[in-house]
Structure formats: structure tokens, C-alpha cells
Amino acid sequence: MPIIVNLDLILAERKMKSKELAEIIGITTANLSILKSGKAKAVRFSTLEAICKALDCQPADILEYVEG
């Protein structure tokens, strides 16, 4: 998929664990793993909003378009 999810990078920058983020935004770690691995077909605005709020970042920091 040409959309890359840079969640791992941001988590590392913020020194936050996946489990912690999953708990804050209210999704399961399995779903967060799907999102991180790029297997997700879509992301809800509410999830994106929660991630941005928890990590204090912009959607563009998490999602990146790479022509491929």
C-alpha cells in the first residue's frame, strides 16, 4: 500500500509503548498492531483524532504517502 503508517517512529520518539497507546485511545493491541503493520483498510477519524491527541502530533506525522 502506498500509505505508510509511521506510528512506530512517533511512539519511539515519545518513548511510549504500543500497549499504553492502545489503552489511551481505547482500541485493542491487536487492532493497533494491524494499524502499525499497514494491514488496515481504513482509519476512523475518531481513532486518528485520539492518536493525535495522545501523541501530540498531526495526522501527517503518522500517515505518509509514498508513490509505489
Binding site: 482500541i27 487492532n31 493497533l32 494491524i34 494499524l35 494491514k39 488496515a40 483498510k41 481504513a42 482509519v43 476512523r44 481513532t47
Partner: peptide, 8 residues
């Protein structure tokens, strides 16, 4: 359903 399951 598959799409819904993969919507986070």
C-alpha cells in the same frame, strides 16, 4: 465485514 474488521 472484512473491511469493517480492518477499519481501526
Amino acid at each position: 465485514k472484512e473491511e469493517n474488521d480492518l477499519t481501526i
